[in-house]
Design a protein around this nucleic acid. Structure first.
Lengths: 332, 332
DNA sequence: CTGTTAGCGCTTTCAA
DNA sequence: TTGAAAGCGCTAACAG
């Protein structure tokens, strides 16, 4: 069962390979209507489908983008992937999605394989290590855009939330003190975690509120019960909690339910990332939504521009998007 | 900035292309230690990375799987994709993920492009149309596995939930009548929707319960408010509701909250798909979990076996997985 | 308007 | 143990 090739079509239609190739590339100008028709028929008759790999080998472009997502279990990652898929689909690009699971080794391996597969560009949630790799990619003029995170000192644009503004809004929204801030592990210096924490501190500072490290916690989701226990056995338990992402938020909700805490009376809650159920929890939960679609669009268009070698008017490197506060009952 | 090729390495190491190629393919037996070392050094010095496309062109295998997901917004789709990614990653395969959005035209276009990109295999949530396309693929011996859905009369294995068992369990779990069944649109004959509906009817029949069509509804999520209104203005509103998937469930929860209905007193609820928040809603919600990991593993291993041309011991065509009932407070 | 020809980067006989 | 050469399927000058 041999695949039919351009040569078979050419033979069947009684023209040469290159004429068929012209046809495939829609360069009809230099082609008689008759030839064109013969080729059409041949393609139809032989059920011919071009081999895009062969074409890509020649043209050095695969219409494929590599995506390295750091932690596929976050709501945000999933939504971004979906939005990117839609964006790239419009332009005829496919995506190969890999999960680095926040493991720099895996990240490196995936990036290298994707390069070997000759992807046209890369969108990465960088783990924070592998800086040299990024520098090398940038030097080789590989189109690449970071999302959600960025790497200091590497000349690669990044699309991310304005985490400082987010935390400022959050602190402003609470009516009660003290406020706790909980994030996933800070073992690696992952931008949104570091920035949200720093943003939180700044927001307190700006309001002349005390920064008490006992109200600032980080850890794996599995450690959250323990962490919340510590928090709620302080002589002065927190009256407001910021969950820095949806995973923390889930753990927090479980804890609140188990301990029978009352929101917002006992403790107010704000979560970053607008999960679909924030609305129908009781009480409904105030969230800071990341503007997924604009962010995905910006990342995609930056990358496509690089791929097409368009000169960008601005060479801004950090594209920060303001969060959208969705005020619900958990902060009343 | 020309890419370095195998020829550059060969020249640098003072050997021929084919020797380098042997090295790359780890056929060290026919190679002096010295040659091997020279090549290693050359690769290191030149930062050489093989071009997998060129290799694939020759070897007719890309180590890439195409995934067509029908509706990426479902929790189930996302989880399956993540699980598949993990499975294929173990075997060194990448995935290109496309969204058909339940649009047969898009599905067809994506499948054809993926074939042109020479993917080694396909995992598809079929829309239900495009039967001829599937038949053709099967005839051409293209490795392909369906998931979540199957197509009648096409000899392609499918991995899916035992929807009949699921509905039987659901009906059994309710303590009150009448029970309503709500699913997303039945405009296309999509397996899980059709089967869950049929399973629901069967379960009622087996218990000699009346099948009343007024309690069986389908529609787009946007139409759900209207549908629930109809349901709850019946002279005898439903005392139990089956939400056939997570999207319906979300709409249902919003409605219940808005109308201030009490679960489980006014109405009991069971949802198919175990969403993470089922646990911390109040009351917590009874769900029928699909065994995502086993399903993904089965689909991946079936596909890999086909790709590697292993003979399968059994030629079973439908792989049905029993749902897991997670009983919570919404059915007490 | 169409055909000839020379690759793209790699693999793989077959000889040496 | 290594190298020469053909070829995977397609494109793109260049000639005619």
């Amino acid at each position: 069962m041999k695949k039919t090739t351009i040569a078979d079509v050419a033979q069947y239609a009684n023209v040469s390979n290159s004429t068929v190739s012209q046809y495939l590339n829609k360069r009809y100008e230099y082609m008689s209507a008759e030839t064109r028709k013969k080729i059409e028929e041949a393609i139809e008759a032989l059920q011919y489908r071009p081999n895009l790999m062969a074409r890509s080998l020649k043209q050095k472009s695969t219409f494929t983008i590599g995506i390295i997502v750091a932690n596929i279990i976050h709501d945000f990652s999933t939504k971004i992937i979906n939005a990117l898929e839609a964006e790239f689909d419009k332009e005829g690009f496919h995506m190969i999605v890999c999960n680095s699971a926040d493991n720099p080794k895996k990240e490196k391996k995936h990036i290298e394989t994707l390069l070997e597969k000759q992807v046209d560009g890369l969108i990465v949630f960088p783990t924070g290590e592998n800086k040299n790799l990024y520098i090398r990619l940038h030097q080789q003029a590989m189109p690449i855009v970071f999302i959600d995170r960025f790497i200091e000192g590497v000349d690669i644009p990044a699309v991310l939330l304005d985490n400082f503004s987010a935390m400022n809004t959050a602190v402003e929204t609470f009516r009660k003190q003290p406020i706790a801030f909980i994030t996933t592990s800070l073992a690696l210096p992952i931008t949104p975690r570091v920035e949200r924490l720093e943003g939180f501190r700044q927001a307190l500072r700006n309001r002349n509120l005390l920064i008490d490290e006992r109200y600032i916690k980080n850890g794996e989701p599995a450690e959250m019960t323990e962490i919340f226990n510590q928090l709620f056995t302080l002589e002065q338990p927190p009256r407001g909690i910021i969950a820095a992402n949806d995973r923390i938020f889930q753990e927090l909700m479980l804890y609140i339910k188990k301990r029978n805490l009352h929101v917002p009376n006992d403790v107010q809650v704000i979560a970053v990332d607008d999960v679909p159920y924030a609305n129908f929890l009781t009480p409904s939960i105030t969230t800071l939504q990341q503007p997924i679609l604009p962010m995905a669009q910006k990342a995609a268009s930056l990358l496509l521009a690089k791929i097409k070698k368009e000169q960008l008017a601005d060479d801004q490197k950090l594209y920060r998007f303001k969060p959208i506060l969705i005020q619900r009952d958990s902060t009343n």
